[in-house]
Design a binder for these strands. Structure first.
Lengths: 208, 208
DNA sequence: TATGATAATGGACAGCTTGTTCGGGACTTT
DNA sequence: AAAGTCCCGAACAAGCTGTCCATTATCATA
C-alpha cells in the first residue's frame, strides 16, 4: 500500500493548477471550459475528472492551498506587536505583503476574473479575519459591528484591485499606509477645511 | 413605415427582461442559459435572437434602462442643496433611495449574482459619479485621487450588499447615515479611547 | 529488478447548450 | 382589407459536459 502520494498524481494536479492560473489571468474564470484547462495542461479528459469533479472543484482546491499558505505566513511572522485589539486593521499589512508575493494568484481572484465563487470565498475568509480583530465594543450602538466588518472588507478588496490595476509599482507598505489612513481617518481628513491652496500651480507630480 | 414600436415587440422585450430579472434572483446570472430565459419568458428561440445577440446583450440593455431611470431621478429631485463640491458623497443619498425603489434590480446586480459584466458596469458608472463630486484638490498628494474614488465605490457597493442581505428593513436614510459616517470619519471614531463601558451587561439590543 | 498496484490515455457515448436558418401563421398598422 | 411586422416551431451543426471502458505507461516496494 502506498504511504506517499504517487508522483504522477502530484504532477497532474500541479499541471492542472498551473493551467488554471494561466488561463484565468488570460480569459477569466467564467469563460473557461474544462476543455481549455486540460488542453493547456496537456492532460487527458478522464484524468481531469479522476481528480476533480469539475472546474469549480479545481478552483476551490487552489484557493484552499493559498489560504493555508497565508495562515502559515501569518503565524510565522507576527512582525512586531501581533494580535491585540487596538489595531482594528491588523490583518492588512500581512495581507498586502502576501498579495505581493503571490501577485498572479491574487490577480485571478480580484476584480471579476475569479468569478462569483472566488469572490464569495475570499469575502468570507476576510470577514472572518476582520471580525476577530475588531474590538467587540463599538462607540455606541448606532453602527452594527457586522456593517463595519463588511465595510472594511469591501474597501480592502477594492484597494487590492486598484493596486494591481493602476499602481502595481507601489510597495505593499505604501498601499497599506494609504488604506489605513483612509479607513481609519476617513474622507473628511483629506478635504480642505483649509482653502489656502486654491490657486497653486498645476504641477501635478503624479503621472496619472 | 412604423413610427411607433410594435406592441408585440415591446411585449416580448418586456417579457424577456422580467424573465431575466426573476431568474437572476433565483439562480444568478452566470448560471443561466438562454434556454432558461426563453422558457421562463415563454418566447421562441429565434425570437430571442431577433432582439438580442445573447444573454449579455439582454443584461446590458436592462442595466442601461435602469441607469437612465436613475439619471432622471437625480435631475428631477436634487432634494435640497444639490451638486456642490463640499459634499464628497453627494451621490449616496439618491443612490440608496433609488436602490430602495428598485430593490429587485439592485439585488441582481450586487453581491455576485450579476456576474462580472454587471460588476464592471456598475463600478464604472459609480466611479464616474464619485469622481465628479470629489473635490479636485486633496490634502497633500500622499493619496491619489483615483484611489480615493475606488475606495469609496468599493465601500459603497459593499454597504449596498450588506443592506440587502442583512438589514433590508432599514430605511435608505438610515443606511445612508451609517455609510457617510464611516466613510467620512473613519474607523477610529468608532473605537473607544473611552473604555468606561467595559463591563456593561450583556443586553445586546440588536437581534443579530 | 521483477511484479503487482495505481494512474494516465484515447476513444466513444448521450445529453445538453448555442446560434442560425427556414416557412407558415398571427398580429398590427394604415 | 391589405401590407407590413413579428412570432413560432422545427431543424441544424457545432461545441461542451460527465461518464464509461480497455489499453498502456508509470510507480512503489519487496
Amino acid at each position: 500500500m502506498p504511504r506517499e502520494i504517487d508522483r504522477r498524481a502530484a504532477r497532474t494536479r500541479k499541471a492542472l493548477h498551473e493551467a488554471l492560473l494561466a488561463l484565468m489571468l488570460r480569459k477569466g474564470y467564467e469563460a473557461l471550459s474544462v476543455q481549455d484547462i486540460i488542453d493547456e495542461a496537456d492532460v487527458g479528459r478522464s484524468t481531469f475528472y479522476a481528480h476533480y469533479t469539475g472546474k469549480e472543484d479545481l478552483l476551490r482546491s487552489g484557493f484552499q492551498m493559498l489560504r493555508e499558505e497565508l495562515k502559515e505566513a501569518q503565524s510565522v511572522a507576527p512582525a512586531g506587536a501581533e494580535a491585540s485589539h487596538d489595531d482594528p486593521l491588523g490583518f492588512s499589512t500581512a495581507m498586502f505583503e502576501h498579495a505581493a508575493r503571490y501577485t498572479d494568484h491574487y490577480r485571478t481572484m480580484i476584480g471579476g476574473r475569479g468569478g462569483a465563487v472566488t469572490e464569495n470565498e475570499i469575502r468570507l475568509a476576510l470577514s472572518e479575519m476582520v471580525r476577530q480583530e475588531l474590538p467587540p465594543t463599538l462607540h455606541g450602538d448606532a453602527i452594527p459591528r457586522d456593517f463595519v466588518v463588511q465595510f472594511i472588507v469591501g474597501a480592502f478588496l477594492t484597494t487590492l484591485n486598484w493596486w494591481f490595476e493602476r499602481k502595481p509599482k507601489l510597495s505593499p507598505s505604501q498601499v497599506d499606509a494609504m488604506f489605513r489612513r483612509l479607513a481609519l481617518e476617513g474622507l473628511s481628513h483629506l478635504m480642505g477645511d483649509e482653502r489656502r491652496q486654491v490657486d497653486l500651480p498645476a504641477a501635478s507630480r503624479d503621472t496619472d
